[in-house]
Each structure stands twice: as structure tokens, then as C-alpha cells.
Computed example of a mutant assay.
Amino acid sequence: MQRSLILDTDIGSDVDDAMALAQILGSPDLSLLEVHTVYGDTRLRARLARRYGVLAGRDLDVVPGLAEPLSGREVWWAGHEGTLHGDLSRETVSAGSAPERLVARLREQPGELDVAAIGPLTNLAAALALEPEAARWIRHLWVMGGSFGDDKAEHNFKSDDVAAQAVLNAGIPTTVTGLEITQQVTIGAALLERIRGAGSLGAALGADIEQWWAFWSETWNVPHDPVAVLALSRPELFTFSEVGSVSVAVGGEGAGRSTFSADPGGTVRIVTGVDAERVAEEITARIVAGGTAYAVQRGEIDGDGA
């Protein structure tokens, strides 16, 4: 059964957002309705998401969201966002705003839509401020964020601790995948070569992956966001906690630190285990599928991937 999905993303900095989008485009069990962008230059991020859709032969509806986190914290900007993609200005994106669009979509289809939030949770917090009932309309929320069982403050939660605390305490059925899980999965040279061979999408994503590796002087990366999204499609590759609550520290030196507490009355669970090798393989296979189908249609490669 296909699940209808809205993706909320800060695509363009860490390459894992682009990987997650490509993975979704290659997932037959997911129907991507819209992409919403958040954090920093959200119009540039939206155009980049739209470009990835074009490379996969998809006419994506992409809606820019809020640029500034509710926390007031300065936006972290790598500086390479979109630089490998020529003339992004020709990509048409929505003139609307992501929080308003999210509320409208959820009101139209209450209880039918999943949301994957793989950036700071600013758009979702703003949507709930506009319409608190929207918390009841989300079928399930899938979050990449936090780090549990240690003192780390993960980027998404730290960037907008105010939004993270508000969203995770709104009563939405939620699964959170933290750093202690995602960091067990890596994408290295062998998997990169497979991705690079997946038509125009694979070539573009491969270049962005290598750019990210060069940024950190590494020869591998952690696919944080694809791991969190895959928990929706392939739950048998993960283990999960019982339901409970997540608290996010707001302000001060510990801003963004996350704590999970089991509670039968809660609505949030966290991922507690991962089959790392199989998850890396499945992420790669779905990315390749997302690029290959359109490449075969265009005659870039034959049906055997050659």
C-alpha cells in the first residue's frame, strides 16, 4: 500500500537531504505529494529540490518555507548549496508558504498524510501555531533529529530548539531517528559508484556527494536523512522503543539536547536499533531505482543499467 508523503527538508547543505529525496522518488511504496523547504535560503533550496525532480522525470510541487528558526539562532550555511546545478533560477516553485500549505493539505486529507521532517522543525511548529488541530490530522510524523543516551546536541534540534520542543510535544504520532542510530550507517566509494550510474539523477547526486565529502575531507558520509525516511518504508530493518515523550532543551549551552522518557500515554517513539548494512543497501537501491527508471525511458541507459 502506498503512503502519501510530504517531505520537509533543508536540502542543499548536507547531501543527505538530496539522497533522501532521490530515495523517496525511487520508493514504490511512497507517493510524494509535495516538498517543503526550511532554514536559510528556502527558495534556493526549493529550486534545488525541483531540479532533482526534473532529473528523475518528476514534476514536483515544491513550496518554500520559513528561513529563520523560531529560536533566533543564526542559520548555518555551508556556502556550496546548489553550486553544481546550473541555472537553478529557471526552476519554478510555489509562491505560497510551506506552513500554510501544510495546514491546507492536512485539512483536505485528515489522517491520510505522513510527514517526513528531515531539517529543523520550524515549518511544522509554525503550522501548528496557525492551526493546532493540524496535530491530529498528521497520520504519522517521521523526524531525523536528536541524539539519545548521550549529551550531544544534534544539528536539526539545536538549530531550532524552540520548534523541536513544540512539535514533539504536540501529541502527533511520531518516530524520531537520532544520531546514535544514523551514525551506524555509511555510504562509501562502492555505493557511490552505483549511485553515480543511475542516469542524470545519479550523476548529479554523485557529484553532490563528492562535494560533501570534500567539504569535510572525508571519503564517506552518513546518510542521516535517508535512514530516518527508510524507517517508514522498511520498519523490519529497525527496532523501536515503546511510546513515550521527547524533551528538547531550549536555550543555553545545552540547547537542542534531547531526552526520551517511556510513557504509555505518550505519542513519540525513537528508533533504538538498525541493521546498518541492509539499510545502506536499501537506501542505495532506492536511489538507483529513482534515477534509472527515467534514464531508461530517455534512452540514457538500457534496461539492464548499462
Rank of each mutant, 00 (worst) to 15 (best):
H155Q: 10
D8K: 04
A255C: 10
R43V: 14
R257H: 13
V268W: 07
H80G: 11
A134W: 03
R101P: 05
L32V: 10
P99S: 10
G273P: 11
A127T: 09
T42K: 06
K158N: 03
G57Q: 11
R58N: 07
R51F: 06
L179R: 15
P99M: 12
L88N: 02
A166M: 09
A207K: 12
V75T: 08
R50K: 15
E236A: 12
E112A: 14
Y294V: 06
S200D: 12
A49K: 03
G244M: 13
A255W: 09
A98H: 04
R269V: 10
S31G: 15
W142G: 00
V93M: 00
V62R: 00
A135M: 06
L88H: 05
A276R: 12
L179E: 07
L21N: 02
Y39H: 08
I283H: 03
Q109I: 00
M19A: 12
S241F: 06
L141H: 04
S27V: 08
T92H: 14
G65T: 03
I24V: 13
R196Q: 10
R234C: 05
W142Y: 04
A163I: 06
E108P: 00
T272N: 02
A262R: 13
L70C: 08
D41L: 10
S89Y: 04
V243M: 11
A67Y: 07
T219N: 01
R136D: 07
A56T: 03
A255R: 15
G254N: 15
S13R: 14
L7G: 02
L168M: 10
V248D: 02
G254M: 13
V250H: 07
I181G: 03
T174C: 14
A125T: 00
W216T: 01
L124D: 03
D304I: 09
S31A: 14
T186P: 00
V296C: 04
T239K: 15
L102S: 06
L88G: 07
R139C: 06
Q23E: 06
L55D: 10
L5W: 05
E131Q: 13
D151N: 14
L55W: 15
G265R: 12
Q211P: 11
N221W: 13
L232V: 05
D29G: 12
R196E: 12
T182W: 00
V274L: 08
L30D: 05
S71M: 08
L30H: 05
E242L: 13
A189I: 01
E68Y: 10
G291A: 04
R90F: 01
V296M: 02
T92Y: 09
V288M: 08
E210N: 06
V185H: 05
F260S: 04
A189P: 02
I181L: 09
G290P: 03
E108W: 01
L55H: 13
V62E: 00
A203R: 15
